[in-house]
Design a protein around this nucleic acid. Sequence first.
DNA 1: GGCGGACTTAACCCCTACGTCAAGGTTATA
DNA 2: TATAACCTTGACGTAGGGGTTAAGTCCGCC
Lengths: 155, 155
Amino acid sequence: MSESEAYLQIGEVAERTGVTQRTLRFYEEKGLLKPPSRMDGGFRLYSEDDVKRVKQIRRLQDLLGISLADIKDMVDAGEILRELKAQYRPEAGIAEKKRQLERAIEVVHAQYAIVKQKTEQMAEMKAQLEERLKTFERWRKELEQLDEKAAVALS
Amino acid sequence: MSESEAYLQIGEVAERTGVTQRTLRFYEEKGLLKPPSRMDGGFRLYSEDDVKRVKQIRRLQDLLGISLADIKDMVDAGEILRELKAQYRPEAGIAEKKRQLERAIEVVHAQYAIVKQKTEQMAEMKAQLEERLKTFERWRKELEQLDEKAAVALS
DNA sequence: GGCGGACTTAACCCCTACGTCAAGGTTATA
DNA sequence: TATAACCTTGACGTAGGGGTTAAGTCCGCC
């Protein structure tokens, strides 16, 4: 949280993450991004952590296709872990930390289950597509042979 | 297209495909399903092919997370192929068939590329999650050891 | 042949995850 | 200080549906 970090305006964050400015404001509105600091004139100022978070959100969206509400749970759990990691002094109470950690583990487990299932389905689909392609190529060759014969018949 | 096929009403199709009746009408509206035949009273009558098509649409949606417009292209290509398969007489013109087949191959290639890319990204994500889980479990054990020591200190 | 319950119809608004202007304020550069 | 480039909030639009409802249809049973 040092004051000397390089802050980014919304346009640069948009460019670096591949999402639109509208999307960044939308994520903020929905609680997926914490409200960033502002310049005097009201312009949003993001941190590098915000950039990482946006990228994480997009990966979860693209790969798992889950709702933003679910993604919020996941990235929140990730945030908790980063906090646990950062403040390694036990002043917050061990029991409290343990609960947070177990909650986070639960979330990661759920995420893992989704990824595993999708991976399997994907592999199945990939195999089917490969088979399909082979069939089609064979047909194409058959058609080409028919075509050649027709050309010969016409000559 | 025989008249003796077992036709299904929308409710049964909904049940067998796992989508709502509303969704079936929506797909029809968007051109993903061809308008089914109707009973005298106006009730929709679906075929087994329609059921297959709906299942295919859902799989593409769930696994690839692509738009209905893209899905329409893909299932249309599949449809063309089924037609090619069915009418194996060359009356439609070989050149025409060849174009259709090549178009279909193109679409399947595109689909395959998406699946392949997603498969790779998914594998990467899975590995990351596994590593994460290991880290967390280690932390949990550390916390538990701290907890035991605290209990001993209090006794 | 007529009744009741299950089924279907189109129509309407609600939801998510943004896209797309519009009208105006801010910052940087000349 | 002017002007381009960037940003602000707000409002409306779109895709892909979900929920609900009033009204019409089908079908077995008496």
